[in-house]
């Protein structure tokens, strides 16, 4: 019990846990459209562009969040514009825009001396979560939740079948741009807890794992939020007790969750196949009059 309660003796852990729960739930919800729309690389790219924004912002004497927000929002809009050009797809647009931002960040840090803790920006640091970080995370969580709530049906239609959604009056381009902007906001809010390099995993793992064990959209959303939140909570405890950066700890717990779902779905599929094979065999034997199918129980 003390393992669970002891960390809360430190004020920073309470703040980190609150921020972690919000970030975990947000990343979990966002992972559903990201995985289904096959845009995992967007999270990866936007997270990389954070470094560019933070470096340029800090070098110019601006706030960390201002730099990160400007870089990710600008990247999200540029990705959208470049991908809209015929002959280019999202993967190419992301590869161009966000790696350029990352490269810019590294170049600026090499040239301009700053007091930026690069390791904390890249891998997350729960010691650094202060009241302002918590406010930023809460504002983003409320705004992103409200946006996803209002746009839910149109977003699902856009992710499932964008061509028909557009014909049926859904503003597909605005929905896609909105999704990119929400992703950008979540990435910015997650930097302190998860770190720029590991956010990408947090917006993929929850839905990727949940997708393996459910075929219902509502269950997928619920399970992804639960997995994201659980990974954050357990990861933060692991970070505290094992003295590892919070980002890697959360991502490793999330990966463990995915592996459990992977093994469980494989086992379930094998059982279903075996049950199907037994049923077919009983059917064949029954046709030949060897067994009575009505009295034969097929166990999975």
């Amino acid at each position: 019990m003390s393992l669970l309660l002891e960390p809360f003796a430190y004020a920073f852990f309470g703040r980190a846990m609150l921020a972690g729960v919000l970030v975990g739930a947000l990343c979990g919800a966002l992972s559903v459209p990201v995985v289904l729309k096959r845009m995992s690389y967007v999270g990866h790219g936007l997270a990389h562009s954070v470094l560019g924004g933070v470096a340029v912002g800090v070098a110019l004497g601006a706030d960390l969040y201002v730099g990160a927000a400007v870089a990710t929002v600008l990247s999200a809009i540029l990705i959208d514009r470049v991908a809209a050009r015929r002959g280019l797809h999202h993967d190419a647009a992301i590869g161009i825009v966000t790696t350029a931002a990352f490269a810019l960040g590294i170049a600026v840090l090499a040239v301009v001396p700053t007091r930026l803790n690069l390791e904390a920006v890249l891998f997350g640091n729960i010691l650094g979560v202060d009241a302002r970080d918590l406010t930023v995370t809460t504002v983003v969580a409320v705004a992103a939740t409200a946006t996803l709530f209002v746009a839910y049906k149109r977003l699902v239609f856009t992710v499932f079948d964008p061509e028909v959604a557009a014909v049926h009056g859904v503003p597909v381009r605005h929905i896609e741009l909105g999704l990119n902007l929400v992703t950008a906001a979540v990435v910015v809010a997650s930097v302190r807890v998860l770190g720029a390099l590991l956010i990408a995993a947090a917006v993929v793992l929850p839905a990727a794992g949940a997708r393996l064990v459910t075929r219902s959209f509502a269950a997928l959303v619920g399970l992804a939020i639960a997995l994201g939140t659980t990974a954050s909570v357990l990861g933060l405890y692991a970070s505290f007790h094992l003295d590892v950066p919070s980002g890697p700890a959360i991502v490793l717990v999330g990966t463990l969750g995915f592996l459990i779902a992977y093994v469980a779905s494989g086992t379930a599929a094998r059982r279903a196949r075996r049950a199907g094979a037994r049923e077919r065999e009983v059917g064949r034997l029954s046709e030949r009059g060897i067994v009575d199918a009505t009295r034969t129980q097929v166990r999975a």
């Binding site: 709530f149 209002v150 149109r154 499932f160 009056g169 459910t214 959209f217």
Partner: peptide, 24 residues
């Protein structure tokens, strides 16, 4: 995607999503 996690009813409901109320 033929394996998209939606039911048949949900797909049909999406057909009129543009004029449906903005709630999930």
């Amino acid at each position: 995607d033929a394996d998209f996690p939606l039911t048949v009813r949900e797909v049909v409901l999406l057909g009129d999503a543009a004029s449906s109320r903005p709630v999930p």
